[in-house]
Design a protein around this nucleic acid. Structure first.
Length: 952
RNA sequence: GCGGCCGUGGCGGAAUUGGCAGACGCCUUGGACUUAAAAUCCAAUGUUCCUUGGAGCGUGCGGGUUCGAGUCCCGCCGGCCGCACCA
């Protein structure tokens, strides 16, 4: 029986596409091109999640649509396969991670093929492929070979780095060291979370209450020698170049906030006796503001130089280099104790304690350069060593944090800004120190600047400081350089060699692995565990240190080296995969420059919002370096970016029961810190959350309540899918029941692409019903053989049928262009509803419809296309065109309102002039009745839309 | 705390951007077909009031602009997601 049977149709067409290489990328790009890219997945052991196909279907629809529009399409897929889960699994089972990774990639590939995506599978890549790792390492060497010329705002070859005379005078080693200090990839002693027991560096997220997440071992903050990438050099360009991109404002803002550019001034405060400050200042007025601060002063960064007159104390971070010199004898023990306890805290712990600020007085004073008054210098961990200069001038009157601190330690507050006229804050409250006013306003107690608005004072004081050699305008970023090394096994080895002496000790000289020796492959190990004890020099010992000597100690030109044993983080591979897709098999270069020019940039990039910041920032950074060095022609990689929303589990009703099984209304329930439901009244009595069936619940006013007891309120919401909640939907099950076309269509029909939305099983059967109806509109499902429905044939197309067709073509075309797939599907449903009622369904119209449906439901469409008499795939059939003339209605219904309320409807021909439309409205009997005895004050006539008459 | 997004029927969501609120789908109810069921098809389906026909009220709440507001402005309330001492 020729019922619609996706499990028979779909594998058949998938085989057809694969055997005929239907979606092979064209060798040469035509007039128009589309590079449609998905954020490639990490191939986890769990297999595909229903969230994956959402974005993938969206790009696939656009790719298929574009091919039919005659556009050259590149639509690839691959795998971001380095990562921790594979390594954990390897440790547990002692099998090489590449084995489980390969298995997972095969599962993912099978699942993706079952969804009928039109990827060019010949371009499949995995970041773990040796041929891919080679070029990841090569790009690292480009970073290693590049320095950033801040004048030209451009990365340049290290060989072009100007060497200062004093450095070149000091010899070759000094020059080499100077170069190493300026490379975009450099080694640095960064403060990191170091866990001695685990022998590894941990991410902030892996540390809780100063203990390691796994094993509860103590973690300390220590400077360790790590590889860093100088992304901060590109901060300005990463921010500015966002502007012309077709990204949502939300994502642009997230990136901007992450970069965190702020402008202000650096200011030097003289340290020492008040009497000497005058002469120091006059010397400064002559010498100007020095590039580096010296020990006579403390340099701060501030965004509010206008509040300088209100600076009543200073704060330096506990790690500041001046701590020792500033601490006086009788403060020494208190300072030592404070700094030691601060060092033991992770960043997270410091943040947790932000409610109550802590600090300690150094015993020293600085001189406020504008007032000449001595002000105390404190140490407090609310000042971060990693931002600005690690020191601040504190203005408690106009900074919330300084205000809290000053209140706690009883430090004077001087108000220097009054709220502007119309502010909620009163000047009197600011003067009395009752409130902290952090906004812009008007200067007071600021000498010559009194009465001027904040913005002007900022400029004027900065200029004055500059003139006096006490300060200069400055820019700062929250963005930090990128800590790029990991003590893990399953990642790309660094292509770097450390020179060693006869005793095997590092000399400090490093060199790149010669390009012709790339890739540096991972060595074979018998044990993937991180080392549990640290090496004698206190540095972590990554697993790669246990490699054979052959791997670990190469000799080049008679010089002995030790390989770098850290690996790159998972981000590395995803930083440039979009380039490799363009030329995936090239062994000579990472990408052919001609092909790069033809295909870049990516025209549509779709993926989850979880990568909105880091991945996109990192990839853009690498791309800009490659651009500066002439390896790519485009400045930005991703022209249009769309973040799909999250697919949540099915909606759940949740009720609460007390210890005696009594129902408790949700209105009386709150959550405690452990996210357990408790009674709101005491915040302690634990309750049990139970799922309530939908038929036991009804809506009353704003809330859902129990049908049997309306005084009991029930919570209603959808939760994130998770294994522990048991609400995970497996795409394989949906495909088995209703087919890939139904899954694709349902995920597109759920709602706007970028919105989070709950799953609904009956919604799936809804779209399956539509596919069934579309099938029956064309196929005779009661016949023995597969044949056309008796109503389908070579019929004259009626005017109404033609109008429906062209309206549908127009709507679907525009909706696909807007990525508004839910409404495109709704229009096709209307089409099917209409033509199912037609006894004569012209074959030509059915064909056009099948083409419209094909990007969304490709298997069903191919099957119907074949049945309509076309032996070849429809993938390259021309996309249907619409004709405005065919859409014109003979008569349209116009509402007539009186005082904005609908009172009648009139039928008029479209395009009627204002006057005629008004005449027709006034001619209406009912309108005449209602207007009787009233005076018409005003008539609003919108042609083809409505008439509104104002009368009383 | 700061920032972003969002509140429309029982549910997911539409609404040519200021012009008929609730397209399309789900759920529910009724009917046709059937010995029966499934499947399919047809119809009803925001809410209240009255007698058909209609009238009133309705887009989280309160105000405003307008002939006209889901859409614009001001002030609240609620939800979700980021960031979190960045001077």
């Amino acid at each position: 029986m020729p019922r619609y049977n996706p499990s028979e149709i779909e594998p058949r067409w998938q085989r057809y596409w694969e055997e005929n290489k239907t979606f092979r990328t064209p060798d040469t790009v035509g007039d128009k091109k589309l590079y449609a890219l998905d954020m490639f997945p990490y191939p986890s052991g769990e297999g595909l999640h229903v969230g994956h196909p959402e974005g993938y279907t969206a790009t696939d629809i656009v790719a298929r649509y574009s091919r039919m529009k005659g556009i050259s399409v590149l639509h690839p897929m691959g795998f971001d396969a380095f990562g921790l889960p594979a390594e954990e699994y390897a440790i547990k089972t002692n099998t090489p991670p590449e084995v489980s990774t390969e298995k997972n990639i095969q599962t993912f590939t099978r699942q993706l093929k079952q969804l009928g995506f039109s990827y060019d599978w010949d371009r499949k890549i995995s970041t773990t492929d040796v041929g891919y790792v080679k070029w990841t390492q090569w790009i690292f060497l480009v970073l290693f070979d590049t320095w950033f010329d801040s004048e030209q705002q451009k990365g340049r070859p290290i060989s072009e780095l100007p060497i200062p005379d004093d450095v070149s005078a000091a010899g070759q080693d000094a020059i080499r060291e100077y170069q190493d200090d300026h490379r975009l990839a450099y080694q640095s002693d960064a403060l990191v979370n170091w866990c001695p027991a685990l022998g590894t560096v941990l991410a902030n997220e892996e540390v809780k209450d100063g203990l390691s997440d796994r094993g509860d071992h103590p973690v300390e903050r220590r400077p360790l020698r790590q590889w860093m990438l100088r992304i901060t050099a590109y901060a300005d360009r990463l921010e500015k170049d966002l502007d012309p991109l077709d990204w949502s404002d939300g994502i642009k803002k997230l990136q901007c906030d992450w970069i965190g550019r702020s402008t202000g001034a650096e200011v030097d405060f003289f340290i020492g006796d008040q009497s000497e400050s005058e002469s120091w200042m006059s010397r400064r007025a002559e010498s100007g503001f020095p590039r580096k601060q010296n020990s006579q002063c403390l340099r701060v960064y501030t965004t509010r130089p206008d509040t300088l007159f209100g600076a009543t104390y200073m704060v330096i971070a506990p790690e500041h280099s001046a701590v020792e010199t500033l601490t006086t004898e009788n403060q020494k023990s208190a300072v030592d104790q404070y700094c030691r306890s601060a060092a033991a805290k992770s960043d997270r712990d410091r943040q947790d304690e932000k409610q109550s600020k802590t600090g300690v007085f150094t015993g020293s004073y600085a001189i406020n350069p504008v007032s000449g008054e001595p002000i105390p210098i404190w140490i407090a961990d609310y000042v971060l060593i990693s931002y600005g200069t690690g020191a601040i001038m504190a203005v408690p009157g106009h900074d919330k944090r300084d205000y809290d601190f000053a209140k706690k330690y009883d430090i004077p507050i001087i108000p220097v800004v009054h709220p502007p006229a119309g502010s909620d804050v009163s000047a009197a409250d600011v003067d009395s120190g009752a409130v902290c006013f952090a906004d812009h306003g008007v200067a007071v107690n600021s000498g010559p600047y009194d009465g001027q608005p904040t913005a002007d004072v900022k400029k004027a004081i900065t200029a004055k400081l500059q003139q006096d050699g006490l300060g200069c305008a400055a820019v700062n970023y929250k963005l930090r350089d990128w800590l790029f090394s990991r003590q893990r096994f399953w990642g790309e080895p660094f292509p770097i060699l450390h020179e060693i002496d006869e005793n095997g000790n590092k000399t400090g000289k490093i060199r790149a692995v010669p390009v012709e020796s790339l890739p540096v492959e991972l060595p074979e190990l018998s044990d993937y565990r991180p080392r549990s004890e640290s090496s004698p020099d206190g540095q972590p010992k990554p697993p790669l240190e246990r490699a054979d000597d052959d791997w670990l100690f190469p000799v080049i030109d008679g010089v002995k080296y030790r390989r770098e044993s850290n690996t790159m983080p998972q981000w590395a591979g995803s930083c440039w995969y979009y380039l490799r897709f363009i030329d995936p098999h090239n062994d000579e270069v990472f990408i052919d420059p001609d092909l790069e020019k033809q295909w870049m940039p990516v025209d549509l990039y779709i993926g989850g919002a979880e990568h909105a910041v880091l991945h996109l920032l990192y990839a853009r950074f690498w791309h800009k370096v490659l651009f500066d060095r002439g390896h790519v022609s485009s400045n930005e990689p991703f022209q249009k970016l769309v973040n799909q929303g999250m697919i949540l589990g099915e909606n759940e009703f949740k009720g609460y029961r007390g210890s005696d099984e009594q129902w408790i209304s949700a209105a009386e329930v709150t959550e405690n810190e452990a996210h357990k439901p408790v009674l709101k009244s005491d915040g302690a009595t634990e309750l049990r959350a139970v799922t309530v069936e939908p038929d036991q619940v009804e809506k009353q006013g704003e809330f859902f309540v129990l049908s049997v007891d309306p005084s009991i309120r029930i919570d209603s919401r959808a939760y994130k899918m998770s294994k522990s909640r048991g609400n995970v939907i497996n795409p394989d099950d949906i495909i088995a029941n209703d087919g890939a076309d139904a899954l694709r269509l349902y995920e597109m029909f759920m709602g706007p692409l970028e919105q989070s939305k709950p799953w609904s099983m009956s919604g799936v059967s809804g779209v399956r019903g539509f596919l069934d109806r579309a099938w029956r509109m064309i196929v005779d499902d009661r016949a023995e053989e597969l044949q056309l429905h008796e109503s389908v044939g070579v019929h004259e197309v009626t005017e109404e049928q033609n109008r429906t067709l062209h309206k549908t073509i127009k709507a679907v075309t525009q909706d696909i262009e807007k990525l508004s797939f839910n409404t495109a599907i709704a229009r096709m449903m209307e089409f099917v509803n209409f033509f199912t009622r037609q006894d004569k369904r012209p074959k030509s119209v059915m064909e056009q419809f099948v083409l419209l449906l094909s990007p969304l439901a490709p298997h069903l469409s191919e099957e119907l296309w074949a049945l309509l008499g076309h032996p070849q795939t429809l993938a390259y059939e021309p996309w249907p065109e619409f004709d405005e003339a065919a859409m014109v209605e003979s008569s349209i219904e116009i509402p007539v309102q009186i005082m904005g309320k609908n009172r009648a409807k009139i039928n008029v021909p479209p395009g009627l002039s204002k006057d005629d439309l008004l005449k027709a409205a006034l001619a209406n009997e009912r309108i005449q009745e209602l207007l009787e005895g009233k005076t018409i004050r005003k008539e609003i006539v919108v042609p083809d839309r409505l008439v509104n008459i104002v009368a009383n």
